[in-house]
Amino acid sequence: MPDMVFGCRPFIVMEEVVRLEDYIIVTNNPLVRDREESRHAVEYHETGIREILEIIRNKVHVGQRLLTHPLSGSVKPGETPYKSVLMTRGKEPVDLMSVELIQSAIEACGKFSFKSEEYDERAMRDFRIIDWTLISSALESADSF
């Protein structure tokens, strides 16, 4: 496995910016879209939890790298309808760690059963809020310099 490089800040060698990473938020959470799209690049998909993870996996397969963990949060993939992740916008050689992380997240979906019809609007709103706070904690790290 190649050395893993995380982070999305530019770093400078010989006074030249040799690499400027830029990120996008990929999400199926409308609250993340509404709160973040004025500040960040947001790619919103109106779809289910497994489907959004598969969209993210397809991006990983063409060389976009995960910047956050797709199994963030203690409400498991089969237990929450929403997931947001941060990814590099540009394409690189496929990052094996990203492949493993997203594959493992999709597999985890099978262990839990989610029944959105059993939740009222307040619960769904709270799922959106929790997912948003999880991605916000990552944005704070990503934007700290």
Binding site: F6, G7, S137, A138, A142
Partner: peptide, 9 residues
């Protein structure tokens, strides 16, 4: 146990 992978590293 942060969400951001660079923090993990």
């Amino acid at each position: 146990e942060n969400v951001y992978l660079a923090d993990k590293q």
